[in-house]
């Protein structure tokens, strides 16, 4: 599974992207964020405020209960500020 980080999530985790292989129990977006937060102190800090994190699965906005599976591209980013 490919994880992409943008804006301050990239700054805080210290990485723009990483390939991960979460355990089978990780089946949805909320579960994935919990698992990612346990990867390092930096991840935990970046994901502390879940309200401030938006998630896209395969380039579609996703809710915490939406499923994730091996091979997905999952992007984590703050609320968007373009325009």
């Amino acid at each position: 599974m490919q994880i992409l980080y943008f804006a301050w999530l990239k700054t805080h985790t210290g990485t723009g992207q990483e390939t991960v292989d979460p355990p089978e129990q990780v089946r949805d977006v909320a579960g994935l964020l919990d698992w990612l937060a346990g990867r390092s102190e930096a991840h935990a800090k970046a994901l502390r405020d879940r309200q401030a994190v938006r998630v896209a699965v395969n380039q579609e906005y996703a809710r915490p209960s939406d499923p994730v599976q091996p091979g997905d591209e999952v992007a984590l980013f703050p609320p968007v500020t373009g325009g």
Partner: peptide, 11 residues
Amino acid sequence: WLKTKAPFWKL
């Protein structure tokens, strides 16, 4: 809609 849905971020 662009401002709230298109994935851009300003630094």
